[in-house]
Structure formats: structure tokens, C-alpha cells
């Protein structure tokens, strides 16, 4: 399973846990605020990804880079996967 697929799967799980709904279709240019997840939901997504993938790129970053859209979020995981 690619990181993208894993992220989409766990994003839906985080939506379920926080009783939120995906607002519209999930695309690379979807702003993270527009995915339906709030900050608690994102925190759950990042924590679940850490459980499943074994790393949290937002802890390991040498230089803080924060994604704004869904595509950038996936790219950060792809980039950090090379360290693991």
C-alpha cells in the first residue's frame, strides 16, 4: 500500500473518530482546512500514521515545513520515508 493510500484510509478513520465528514472530493490541491478534519482530527491522523508507519515527519523535521494542501501533506510523508 502506498503512503497516499494509507493516508487516505486513516484520514477516513480520523473523520469517523471525530464525527466529521469529508467536505467534497479529496484532491492534491484540497486545502487541509477543507478536508473536514479540524486540528484534533489532524493530530489523530498524524498519530495513527505514526503507529502504522513508524514515524512522524512533524517531529523529525530538521526544518519546520508545514503543508497547506493535501498533496503537500502526502509529499512530506513520501520525502521522510526515505529516512526509514
Amino acid at each position: 500500500m502506498s503512503y497516499r493510500e494509507k493516508i487516505v484510509e486513516l484520514l477516513h478513520e480520523a473523520l469517523f473518530i471525530t464525527e466529521s465528514e469529508l467536505s467534497g472530493e479529496l484532491q492534491d490541491m484540497t486545502p487541509l482546512l477543507g478536508t473536514g478534519l479540524d486540528s484534533l482530527g489532524f493530530a489523530i491522523l498524524v498519530a495513527r500514521l505514526e503507529e502504522e508507519l513508524g514515524f512522524d515527519p512533524f517531529v523529525e523535521m530538521d526544518e519546520a515545513v508545514y503543508p497547506r494542501v493535501f498533496g503537500e501533506f502526502v509529499a512530506i510523508y513520501d520525502k521522510h520515508s526515505t529516512n526509514h
Binding site: 486540528s39 498524524v46 498519530a47 512533524f58
Partner: peptide
């Protein structure tokens, strides 16, 4: 608590 890089703890 479980440390969270976004909200401190979960």
C-alpha cells in the same frame, strides 16, 4: 497521554 506533534498530547 500520547505525545502529539500537533496538539501537544492526545
Amino acid at each position: 497521554g500520547k505525545g502529539s506533534s500537533l496538539v501537544g498530547e492526545l
